[in-house]
Simulated scan of single mutants.
Amino acid sequence: MSFLDSSKMWIDTIWSILTAEPLLTIFLVVFFGGSVLLALIVNMIKQYRLKKSGILEVDKMTGKNFEEYLQVLFKSRGYHVKLTPTTGDYGADLILTSKGEKIVVQAKRYKNNVGIKAVQEVVSARSHFSADKCWVITNSYFTNPAKELAGSNSVELINRDQLLSWMLKMNKQ
């Protein structure tokens, strides 16, 4: 028996049970539909809370939460946003696309100034992901060596002041 025949057999069996037992069908629709609806509501609440976060909340976020915050921020700015895996991200935390342009982003939620390592990581990510641009975004500021390396590698640095400006625009929407 082929995979397709086996799949069809399972589908036919499930269909016959569901059509013969309308209460079971109603229960399954309510249970699974409710679960999906609940997951959507929880996600919407999380997105809303992230969107309403201020800079002081950002300063307290984990690195992963900061990446999720930036995802919400960039979606509000019209980008399609993909978060990369936590490990093995090749130096990019987010991949933004808009109007045929691809931008890799290294996100640094730091208490101190961001150094050259973040710039090095995002430069390698630009090559790996064949991106048009690369950015490093922080809730802090950048060291002078990071600024110098970014300048010689066409890396855009977005510091606390620029981030705050974007946040204020998002919260006005």
Rank of each mutant, 00 (worst) to 15 (best):
S2K: 06
F3G: 11
L4S: 09
S7D: 02
K8L: 14
W10M: 13
I11P: 03
D12S: 11
D12W: 03
D12K: 14
I14K: 11
W15T: 13
W15E: 14
S16R: 15
I17G: 03
L18C: 04
A20K: 12
L23F: 08
I26E: 11
V29C: 05
F32N: 10
F32R: 03
G33D: 11
G34D: 01
S35A: 12
S35T: 09
S35Y: 12
L37P: 02
L40Y: 12
V42I: 15
Y48G: 06
R49M: 10
I55K: 05
E57D: 13
T62A: 08
F66P: 01
Q71F: 04
L73C: 01
R77F: 14
G78Y: 01
K82Y: 04
P85T: 05
G88F: 01
G88N: 05
G91S: 01
G91W: 00
T97K: 03
K99E: 14
E101N: 11
I116V: 14
A118M: 01
Q120R: 15
E121S: 10
V122E: 02
S124C: 07
S124G: 13
F129C: 06
V136W: 10
V136H: 12
I137Q: 05
T138N: 10
T143E: 08
P145W: 08
P145R: 04
K147T: 12
E148M: 09
A150K: 09
A150Y: 06
S154I: 02
V155N: 08
I158Q: 06
I158H: 06
N159H: 08
L163E: 06
L164N: 15
S165C: 11
W166M: 12
M170G: 00
M170R: 07
K172Y: 06
